[in-house]
Write a protein that binds this DNA or RNA. Structure first.
Lengths: 198, 198, 198, 198
DNA sequence: AATGAATGAGTCTTCATTCAT
DNA sequence: TATGAATGAAGACTCATTCAT
């Protein structure tokens, strides 16, 4: 038997590329950058991925899948909708923001290679279901056409991610904390609930 | 006696590159793409810009300056704050969304070459001033720490732009109209005003 | 106790490569093409042959040896020279043309790796001996310097093979049947014999 | 104005590649071989040809066109058919054999990129017309079906070229002179004419 | 000012071959 | 013996930029 395909090496590639792509962009990252960063040989990169594009796809698909898993784990654990929203805000969102590299890639040029539309669709579906559940009272939300609600979720979601992304990379007079602060207030107000502080 | 640099040609380059960069990304656009699109020669491109980066910078700096000008023109014309907000929503925002190419570039990889942070700072400054003016009643807004408000504006601003951008490029179950619908409702509700329909 | 090198596997490699080399050329055929075609592993290929060149050499050497064997078998069976010529034309030549892959390789780039000269020498020797035998009458042939005769045989031989090769790969207004027709007529006429039809 | 596309450089490339392709084959010749041989830079190669294949095509198409021109020039000058055949044998054929590199390429792998079929068709058309003209007496030829005649011409043509090609590259007990000797005799005999010696 | 040929470092990818298992 | 992961040189081709004209 030959040496066996090493899960570690694949992971090293994915991990290095995540940083590289997030920092420099997908197109601007060369295979030799990847070679330098991973310490592997060119040939080895190509035994694990058949082309550069496949690496971004792996990063975003796997990253997103992990995210969705974590989300359903969090939401599947039962509890009232309010509790779930709390979990969403204080459990999921920070975790998501942790993985800014993934976001950077997802929202960057890689959008060309990733089915970002589908991914967002699935996510808004889940959250819209949660928010519009009969348990939730605010009339405003109940009467909102589903598509408008979804659009809102997308605006919020992308807005938060973009804002945090910009906060970190550009010199902006506003920080990540401010963004979270704003988000918390908005949710509390629009859903007429009170969430505990972080 | 030398001919004078031709403003037209510069404009052709800027205009063509705007489309090119928005569509294909900055790095992925080659100078020969630019040559093809403009119908000019390589040499001519380099007569007007000393390198590719300078073209993006011109696009975003000039584009943004124009945006800001338009904004102050709109807001400087007097009127109550509510009227100004209406103008913001129905005059400025659609105009901005018109120039999706600029947005695409601004939020894309070019962020590296553009001082996006500064630009956002200036914009939020203007709008925050408007919203927090004594004339506006909602306590919620009045009591909001300025930084939180600014963060909110950034979230909204980037969220709207990103959402519209994604709507157009990806297949998302939600359209541009839904986004605008959501935005209008949100402003009305949070500012406790009623805006006329588009 | 080690397993013995498997004659079958070697044959599979030779056979697959024959097709591959004939179809795509030697240089243009990659080892991974061979792996795909044979269903064997790279390592196994290298167990049976120490390099790619050795495979062409095996194909052409063994192929040619087989050809020569068949030829001497046909000619050794006795009979008049005219009968032998008939056998040559109707027995050997079609059989040879059957193996167009071998020809393709022999006349193609692989000529670099194969001692084609020697092989031709041996073949023309045999046929020249046959044609110039005292039993053959045509003065023209009898008086022909041996080298001229041999040159003629080479011209015919290569001409026929090349013509058939081209007929099959290019769109030529002339077919394999026409070539055979021509050859038969020529032999009949120059040797003043009458050969039965195919 | 910029430096003007240099016909010389194009010619240098074509000439160098002709040698390279003939000697080493098309696939086996790398662009860096071409760079080394021509003394030009990679980039320059690509300003004159958009890919490697285009170089072979240029070589074979232009080479063949030149050949055809020369042929019609020779044949168009009037004279009896016998004189024309003499010209063909002593004027055209040696000239053709001079350009062995072209032949090498034409008959080699490049056949894949070159419309060799068409080229042969045109050539045999011309010669067949010449041979079958009413002026020519030998019944044998007059009664020959045109396709058989053409096949014969192809066999002879390819046979001669291949034979000479092999003579020069391989160690064969037979030389180019023998080939020419054979060809002369064959033509004299089959056309019942007497050609002057070289 | 305008042109576009020239450049060679750099692009992604494939190659034949080796060798640990 | 059989395997196929590992390797890095080499493959064809493109790039942004320069500069002679």
């Amino acid at each position: 038997m030959s040496r066996v395909k090493d899960v570690n090496k694949r992971a090293v590639i994915v991990q290095s590329c995540k940083g590289l792509f997030a920092r420099n962009g997908f197109v601007a990252t060369s295979v030799s950058d990847i070679v330098r960063e991973t310490g592997l040989s060119v040939g080895t990169i190509y035994t694990y991925f058949k082309c550069k594009e496949d690496i971004v796809r792996a990063i975003t698909d796997e990253g997103w899948a992990e995210l969705e898993e974590r989300l359903s784990a969090l939401l599947g654990s039962g509890g009232t909708d309010t509790e779930k929203l709390e979990i969403l805000l204080h459990g999921f969102l920070p975790e998501l923001l942790q993985d800014l590299e993934l976001i950077q890639i997802l929202l960057g040029e890689a959008a060309r290679y990733t089915r970002l539309g589908e991914k967002l669709d699935r996510l808004t579906e889940i959250i819209a279901g949660l928010i519009q559940s009969p348990e939730r009272r605010p009339e405003a939300l109940q009467n909102l056409p589903t598509n408008t609600l979804k659009a809102g979720l997308v605006v919020y979601f992308l807005g938060i991610l973009s804002a945090v992304r910009i906060c970190r990379s550009a010199t902006l007079g506003v920080g990540e904390g401010d963004v979270m602060d704003f988000v918390t207030r908005t949710i509390e107000q629009s859903l007429e609930i009170r969430l505990r502080k972080t």
